[in-house]
Amino acid sequence: MNWQAKSLPHTEQPMKLSYYPGCSLHGTAIEFDVSTREVCKHLGVELVELDDWNCCGATAAHSLNRDLAAAASARNLAIASRRGMPLAVPCAACYHALKKTDYEMRHDADLADRIRTEFGIDYPGGVDVRHIMHVFADDEMLAAIRQKVTRPLEGLKFGCYYGCLIVRPPEAMGNIDDPENPQKMETILNACGAETVDWSYKTDCCGGAFALGRPATAMKLIAKIFDNAIKSGIEAIAVACPLCHANLDGRQPEASEILGREVNMPIFYFTELMGVAMGLAPVKKILGKHLTSVQPALEKLS
């Protein structure tokens, strides 16, 4: 199978995209928001935040009511559809909800009909929903990124961690990347001069949905991810999801206890690493917000 992101039209200068930050990027994942906006600005991509967007419902909505989940995402998609631009989403959970709902609205006529008649949301499907990673991972963008790199990310071995929601299920997610061994994040970090390592746990679940509901289970999953990362020689992990980041960045004391060895792994949003490679000051400024210090890693990079 040829996993390929459809290229965005590069005719408009600057490229303009609708932007759905989601609740986390306005809160605990502020670093993801700032780094995404800064990197886009630097690459000439204009992000226009969606008007009056609502929460995508995340795992909670589809766990308790299918129509509620579809309606919550469909409302956002209908707003994006009126804008007529592709919709860029950094949060993996929001991306998954929006992309999956768009797929369902195109493939399940009964659902689309219920959403229109019972919720007053007329959305037949069709918005081009993009994870922000897939905006950067096309050939033209990668060439632009290479040109903007002033400080190649040399000196550390990076592991790209995708988690669940960007790659699964592949059909609803547009068959953009291999669900068992995705590569898009690697191509972006490689363009920034980074060395990336192959490892087995890049799409294993971190238990994000259980971070509060069943933390002991989440910590077991987190520990397994760290165990494999360390055994693979990974020195820093790049993520593309606020829940993965919160879990991997914040639960290292517990993972250390489970593994019986100290885990001290810097966890970056991949957009932060792009910002560092491009020498963007506002991105460097927010790196201090991480719970596990990334300072030693940054020193190795310079």
Binding site: C23, S24, H26, G27, N54, C55, L64
Partner: peptide, 25 residues
């Protein structure tokens, strides 16, 4: 069977209902 997990989803959705978006704290 897992009440705590249900309570998390339920609390999450109540917050969405209250404001349309989640405030994490």
């Amino acid at each position: 069977a897992e009440e705590r997990i249900y309570k998390f989803y339920n609390t999450f959705l109540k917050r969405v209902e209250a404001g349309g978006r989640i405030n994490e704290p």
